Amino acid sequence: MMELANPWAFALLPLLWLVRWLPAYRRPLAALRLPFFDQLVEAAGSTKAGEQRRSPLSRLLQLTIWVLIVVALARPEKLSEPIVWQSAARDLILAVDISGSMDERDLVDSEDQPRQRLAAVKDVIRDFVADREGERLALIVFGTRAYVQAPLTEDLDTLTALLDQTEVGMAGPHTALGDAMGLAIRQFEASEVEQRLLVLLSDGADTGSRMSPINAANIAAQRDVHVVTIAIGDPDGSGENRVDTDTLKAIADTTDGAFFTAADQQALAAVYQRIDELAPRKVATHSYREHRSLSHWPLALAGLLALLMLTLDRRSHAPATPPQPASARPEEDAA
């Protein structure tokens, strides 16, 4: 496929004729009249001043060269076939609680065997991340403090490896729920996509956050961040081991998200499937065509024609070869 990047350049085509009508181009010049000018011109092998006009071929070459220059200015380009690719129009952050209570072994797997809470969460998140191909994810872990374990990235293998390296208590024994949300909101500041989703998983109540969870939820709502909260643990427990379901529900309601509870590993896996149904992944389609300039071809042809025109002009104005004197007679040479 061909197209012109600057088609307006063709408006310059009449310029060649307009220049000939400019006063500066057609102004008379001072001349010296000679009564024997015709004989002088004939002896020089040239043409008369009033007859120094280009041949029809030279004028045709001049016109062709100008048209080729204008075509080059119009920048003809060859377009490749469309290159189409898709990218996710959603950024997703996983905020995982790794406080001391995540060491409890009360989550049951498919074989009815009790498992550590964090170990069961890792298995489910690992499968969830594997299905996010082409999507940007980030991982935040929090305990007494919140930390970015992996920033927003499409390198899901690295994110999974960093998830496997997390251990209970790495961020402290307590649960800074509000700080984790605030850190996630700051990560979304670099995001330009429309859909921003935070999946917040916790098994305890907020203790000592510098930013309260409800305040963080209001800020998230103002910045179009939807929060899905997942409660793991016993809501009837005591102290920091008690899941604060009321706060998690309030966070989800404020941000137009959703709230889930996970009593075992199978229920946790079902929660992540439910998340895909509530917030399906949006895909942005992009298209690109490679533009290959062809301007050098008309320019090269114009240069060749210009050389040809100069050669023809030189030949047409070259002085005639003067007649050679007749050779002397042999008799005269002998004399």
Rank of each mutant, 00 (worst) to 15 (best):
L79W: 09
G45P: 05
L32H: 11
G50I: 04
E277L: 12
M2Q: 11
K282L: 14
S327W: 02
R196F: 06
A220E: 03
P323I: 08
L32M: 10
S209Q: 04
H317N: 15
M1H: 11
Q86S: 15
W17T: 07
P151L: 10
V84T: 15
A250M: 12
Q62S: 14
L201A: 10
L107Q: 08
F37A: 15
E277W: 03
L156G: 02
A318W: 09
P76Q: 11
D127K: 12
A180G: 05
K48A: 14
Q149Y: 03
A138P: 09
A180W: 01
V121I: 15
R54N: 13
A269W: 04
Q324K: 12
D253C: 05
N215W: 01
Q113N: 14
F188Q: 00
P213L: 05
L198C: 03
P330A: 14
R26E: 06
L310H: 06
G143Y: 01
R186G: 05
D157V: 10
L139E: 06
T160D: 11
L68Y: 03
A72M: 07
F142S: 07
A328K: 10
T261P: 00
S87L: 11
V193M: 05
R292F: 07
A216M: 09
V199M: 07
V129K: 02
G169H: 04
A150Y: 01
R281G: 12
A161P: 00
I98Q: 00
P235M: 06
R242P: 03
A205G: 12
D123Y: 03
E133K: 15
F36T: 13
R314Q: 13
T175P: 04
E3L: 14
D103F: 08
L34T: 08
D253Y: 06
R27C: 08
G169W: 01
D157M: 09
L107D: 00
A49F: 11
L294P: 07
A24H: 05
A9V: 10
L200D: 00
L68T: 08
E77H: 09
D264Q: 10
S202H: 02
E240G: 08
S58W: 00
V168R: 04
A119K: 10
R289Y: 02
A328Y: 06
Q273D: 15
H296K: 07
A44G: 13
L197G: 02
G257S: 10
D38H: 13
E111L: 11
T261I: 04
R329P: 13
L79K: 15
A250P: 03
S212F: 03
P298R: 05
S191H: 08
M102G: 07
F128T: 08
P82W: 09
A334H: 11
L301N: 05
L200M: 09
L137N: 03
F260R: 00
M211T: 09
E51D: 14
I140M: 04
V108R: 12
A263P: 00
A9N: 07
P319K: 09
E167D: 11
Q266D: 13
H317R: 15
Q273K: 14
L40W: 09
S316I: 06
A180H: 02
